[in-house]
Structures are given as C-alpha cells and as structure tokens.
Write a protein that binds this DNA or RNA. Structure first.
Lengths: 209, 209
DNA sequence: ATTTTTTTGGATTGTCAACTCCATTTTTTT
DNA sequence: AAAAAAATGGAGTTGACAATCCAAAAAAAT
C-alpha cells in the first residue's frame, strides 16, 4: 500500500531544508523580476541572489518558466497579504480612502519604481505564456473579489443606492489602480495614481446615501 | 559656408532609399515588439521581418536600444494618429462615448491581445531604460493633453460645472484606459476595459450641466 | 567623369544565458 | 547500521543573440 496520499505526479517530497531552499529561490527570483522584469533576470542572477548552485535551482524547478509560475503565485500572495488589513474591510468610504492613502504612500516610498508586482508580470507575460496568463488572471480575480466584497457589504447595508453595481465598481476601481500604478511608474510622480483612484472613489461616492 | 542647416551631431544624411529602409526596419520592429515585447524580439527577428541584413540595421541604428527608442516615437505617433479623429473632438459626452466604443471595438478585433502599444513598452522599459522612460512619458503626456483639450473646451463652454477639474479628469480617464487595457489583456475579455471607461465617463457625466 | 558618400551583403566574433551531467554530501527511511 | 532518497557543488555543453568587420554595389556630389 502506498504511503503517499494522492500525490500529484510531479510533486516530489521535500525535506524541511528543501522547502527552505525552494522558498529562498522563489523570493530571490520575485525580487529580481520585480526590479528588472522576467527576461531581464537570468537564472544565474537568481542563483547568486539566493546563494544556490545551478543544480539546486534545477532540482526544484524543471525550467525557468516553472520558476516564473511559482513567482506569480508568490507575488499574488504577497500583494494580497500586504493589503489584507485593508482588503478585508473595504466597506465604507473612509476605509476606501485609507486604502487609497496607503497605496499612494507605498509608491512614494518606492519612489514610483516598479509599478504593480502582478501588473508588470501580466504585461510582460500575458500574450506569450498562456499558463502564466491564467495564473495572473486568477490573481487579479482574487484581488477584484476582495474589493467587491466590501462594496457588496455596503450595498447590502443600504449604504449604496440600489442602482449601484458593486461588481462593476470593483472592477473599475481595480483598473484605475492598475492604470494609475503604470502611469505613476512612467511619470515618476504619484499624480496619475491619485487622479485615477480619487476619481473612482468620487464616482463610488455618488452612490452613497 | 555649411549647407547642412543645424544638423544635430548624429544625424547623417539619408537618401530616399535610405529613409525607406529605415522606416521599414522601425515598422517591423514595432510590430514584433508589440506582439512579443522588446526582449522577446531579437535584432535578427527584425532583420528577417524587414528583409534587411545585419549591416543595414546597424547602419541605421547604433544599437538595439536606439532602435527601441525609434519604435517608441513611432508607436506614439501611430496611436495618436489612429485616434486623431476622436482625440481632436472629445468635447461632448457623445464624443467621449464614441471614443469609448471605438477603443472597445478595437480590442475585440484584436481578440484582447497586446494591450496598449505604448503602455506595454512603458511597463517593460520604464524602470531600466531612463531615456526610453522619458520618451514614453512624453508620449503619454501628448495623449493626456488631447483628452484634456476636449474637457477644457466643455468646461469653457459651461457644459461642465465650475468645480470640475478637467486636468484631473483627463488624467484619470487615461489611467482607467490603461488599466482597462491591461486587465482586458489578462482576462481575455473586454469587461475590465468597459467597466473602467464607463465608470470614468459616468463620473465625468456627473459634472455636466 | 570621377570622387565621395551612402547603402548593402554576409560571414564572423565574443558573450551570455539556459540547461545538463556526474560526483559527493546530507538526510530520511527501514 | 545499512540502504534509499534528497540535496548540493560546480564544471561543461549548446545555442542564441548583439554587435563587428571587410568588401562591394549603388547613389549623390563635384
């Protein structure tokens, strides 16, 4: 009788040490790919940053593409975790405003570099890497869902007019955020991010009672 | 007395044939880089697409980076020219709506592939290529300016309330457009683009008299 | 007409990046 | 304690890619 309980084909067993190494590789890759893009980051760069050898890296990831997929999952988690305190309570105009402020503040601290960790991966990979695209879409949908939850709560409470469509508003807000982050990265100033988010929040505000 | 009237340092004279070849190279590079990104496009790919030899390409462009700069200028022109019929008359809600429809229609025709020709270059190059970033920012500013002109016209005519800020609205609209194009590329459906633009147009609409 | 400049052909070079291989050490299992 | 599996070291292979070079054809200038 097999001990491995329903282990998917490729999923080897990893020791504690193995998991740590794997995690270190992903974190290093995520960092570099955020700064320089996927194709601007060589596997060797990742090796150096993570302090691992080539054989280690290829022991945990069949090829670069697979590492990239892991990075996408990782970055999605990172972004959602970092925003969690806000995302789980976006159910009032005040909460939305605080969220806006936190995002703007973060871009200031980053000196407007890097855009959105998921968005920039999406822009680079969507059209050429179908599996990456799927994963990225899933990430954005989780994000969208969090925003939607808050607006739906307001709607259910009667704090948004019946005609308001929380689903559309949530998606619109995410687009303004993404576009704002991109333009802020290009312009090297937070004006676009502020303009995009503020306009969208004002629009949501027109539905409040 | 010099014949060359104020010729900038690097600007060699080009014969008619030379200009054609140069233009063919840029167009080919722009096309490929739109489809596969800058680092996904090799100089050799461009040679094949444009039917030129290596020496020709390097005769007109010192290095790949210089070709990329030319592509940025070219794509900015292309985008603005393509939208010109709309951009020069964005001075009514009807005009804005038609513009929205045209953009959505284009993405449908493209099957949601490719995002924004300028936006995707911006995402790939902004943080690592300072000169490219500057050029891209200039391109976006022209675009922003066109939108602003229309809204300012409405404002001056008294069709927008005095409190409305056409500058902010124009920038916000551009961010919604960029974010919408990105998410549409990732989701492979036009819903995000529609949601972003419609919300922003509705917001502008709240200022009409 | 002839000199100069521009344009083109195409082979070549050097670098770098992804990935492989085999041996060795460490950890886990029995 | 022995056997099996996992983790690591690091040199080596292969291919792709940016960029160069030398020579020749075509066009423009004088």
């Amino acid at each position: 009788m097999e001990k491995q309980v329903e282990n998917k084909k490729n999923e080897r067993r990893l020791t504690k040490k193995g998991k740590e190494t794997r995690a270190r590789i992903i974190a290093a890759a995520a960092q570099l790919m955020f700064e320089r893009g996927v194709s601007g980051t060589s596997v060797e760069d990742v090796q150096n940053e993570a302090k691992v050898s080539a054989s280690q890296l290829y022991h945990y990831f069949k090829e670069k593409r697979e590492l990239v997929k892991a990075v996408i999952v990782y970055q999605t988690e990172q972004v959602l975790n970092a925003q969690e305190p806000f995302l789980s309570h976006l159910d009032s105009m005040e909460a939305l405003k605080s969220w806006r402020d936190a995002i703007v503040q973060l871009q200031i601290e980053r000196q407007c570099q890097g855009g959105c960790p998921i968005g920039s991966l999406a822009s680079e990979l969507s059209d050429t890497e179908p599996e990456a695209r799927t994963e990225l879409a899933a990430g954005f949908m989780k994000w969208e869902q969090s925003i939607r939850n808050g607006l739906q709560t307001m709607h259910a409470r009667g704090e948004l007019q019946a005609e308001a469509k929380p689903d559309d508003l949530a998606l619109a807000l995410l687009t303004a955020l993404q576009g704002g982050l991109l333009l802020t990265q290009v312009y090297k100033e937070t004006r676009p991010l502020k303009a995009g988010l503020d306009a969208m929040l004002a629009h949501i505000g027109t539905f409040t009672i």
